[in-house]
Simulated assay, not measured.
Amino acid sequence: MVAEQARLLERARIAQDMHDVLGHDLSLIALSAGALKLAPGLEDHHRMAAQDIRAKAAAAVERLGEVIGVLREETDDAPMGPSDSGLTHLVGEASASGLAVELRVDGEGADLPPVVERAAHRVVQEALTNVAKHAPHAATTVHVSHTATETQVLVKNGPASTAAGLRPWSGGRGLIGLDERVRLVGGSFEYGPRAGGFAVVARLPHMPPAQAPRPADATPHLQGGGLPQEYRRARRSAGRTLVTTVMLPLVTGAVLSGALMGWEMVSASRSVLDPRVYARLRVGQDRSEVEHVLPDRQTVARPSATEPKGRDITCEYYAMTADRFDDRSGNAYRLCFRTNTLVSLDALAS
């Protein structure tokens, strides 16, 4: 039961991590929808749709926070790591606190998946906490190795002093929680005595395979048999709560993102001026001659360029392409009219 409590506590931390990431993404969706709502030339029913997307994204962020709050209350307070999740910062803080700790990093870890980066941070954080408790004067090494497929974290310390070794062991709940976090990302976790000291090793794949659930009575590194039936039911209930917590914002975010991207693509396609049509336009033409070949709406892109000055001059902008992956994406054609006469034609790069 103690081991299971530690696992549930770590799952609450994982849920909070998901809240931070998904809450940020949903906030960006709401921000984009708000900008779309204010776009010039937008029809009223499309403006209402953008407003609705923004409202739903904001509501999803609030609901996500409420669900995470309930989960944390049910599993006791689960303190998060520091806002700066860099391992250099973490090891630097430990060193400033008096630990003789050295950080070694092999390979490039700039593009780690967020779950791997957070799991590695938690492994180092918990391992250094244990060193501070049980071997505060021992030389400690944090070795992080990045390859194309996995990240390995090794934290090892030398023998503890006699005085520190007499301190009571806290029960290993933090290590059990780490085992649960590493397992959930498809990795492996080991810990135990090494060369008179202690070592913690975690292997974190960058693309974890599908995981089969661990049997209810499998409790690594601990003695004991199966859990009581009542506790297994409580664990299943907590698991369903966690799945709901994670999946609800994921699905909501995917739907909102898809709707917003779909609207942007449709809107962009209706503002594209065919290059062949542009090539046939001539300065001096009357607006009535060119109106029937112009797109339904103007593009929201406005490449920086000085507009012609003069009274009664108005300029219109039309996209060169609706394909985001086209090199011309963001470029625009500018047509300027004085009263009803075309006075300038420009192809502008963003």
Results as ranks from 00 to 15, higher is better:
Gly65His: 07
Val300Arg: 15
Pro249Ser: 06
Ala120Val: 06
Ala322Trp: 02
Ala254Gln: 12
Val185Asp: 00
Ala94His: 11
Gln285His: 09
Leu22Val: 14
Leu248Tyr: 00
Met320Gly: 11
Gly330Trp: 00
Phe337Pro: 02
Met48Tyr: 11
Thr147Ile: 11
Thr341Leu: 06
Gly187Met: 01
Asp286Val: 05
Gly226His: 09
Pro79Gln: 02
Pro40Asp: 00
Ala322Asn: 08
Leu28Ala: 15
Glu66Ala: 11
Ser95Cys: 02
Leu222Arg: 13
Pro159Val: 01
Tyr191Leu: 02
Ala139Phe: 09
Ser329Gln: 03
Arg203Asn: 10
Ala212Glu: 05
His46Leu: 12
Leu348Thr: 06
Asp84Thr: 14
Thr241Glu: 04
Gln125Thr: 04
Asn157Ile: 05
Arg181Asn: 01
Ala15Asp: 07
Ala216Cys: 03
Arg11Lys: 07
Leu31Met: 03
Ala279Tyr: 10
Pro295Asp: 01
Arg72Lys: 07
Glu66Gly: 12
Leu112Glu: 08
Ser170Met: 01
Glu102Val: 15
Thr245Leu: 01
Glu180Asn: 05
Asn130His: 12
Ser350Gln: 05
Leu175Gly: 03
His137Gln: 04
Gly81Gln: 12
Gly186Lys: 02
Leu22Ser: 13
Ala349Ser: 12
Gln229Trp: 13
Pro303Phe: 02
Ser161Asp: 14
Gly107Phe: 10
Gln5Ser: 06
Met320Glu: 06
Leu281Lys: 09
Val251Gln: 14
Leu242Val: 15
Arg203Cys: 02
Ser304His: 14
Pro205Asp: 04
Asp84Ala: 03
Glu108Arg: 14
Ser304Gln: 11
Val116Phe: 03
Tyr333Asn: 12
Leu128Gln: 02
Thr299Ile: 14
Arg232Gly: 07
Thr75Ala: 00
Arg118Tyr: 05
Ser95Phe: 06
Gly92Trp: 03
Ala30Phe: 07
Leu38Val: 06
Lys309Glu: 07
Ser304Phe: 08
Ala238Tyr: 15
Ser288Gln: 05
Glu307Thr: 03
Arg47Val: 02
Gly92Met: 04
Asp296Leu: 15
Ser344Leu: 14
Arg214Gln: 08
Ala3Phe: 03
Leu8Lys: 07
Gly225Leu: 03
Pro136Val: 04
Phe325Glu: 12
Arg214Phe: 08
Thr162Gly: 02
Leu103Val: 08
Arg233Trp: 04
Glu230Phe: 15
Ser288Gly: 05
Arg7Lys: 09
Ala216Lys: 06
Arg203Val: 05
Val293Pro: 04
Val142Ser: 03
Leu103Asn: 13
Asn340Leu: 00
Leu87Met: 08
Ile14Ser: 02
Arg233Glu: 07
Gly258Val: 06
Pro209His: 00
Val70Phe: 09
Gln125Ala: 09
Val283Thr: 04
Gly330Lys: 09
Arg54Leu: 05
Leu36Ile: 11
Val272Gly: 01
Leu8Gln: 10
Leu99Ser: 11
Ala35Asn: 06
Val343Arg: 13
Ala218Thr: 14
Ser97Gln: 04
Val131Thr: 12
Lys56Phe: 00
Ala138Thr: 05
Lys156Ala: 11
Gly172Glu: 04
Leu184Ala: 10
Ala319Lys: 01
Ser145Phe: 11
Gly258Lys: 10
Ala163Asn: 08
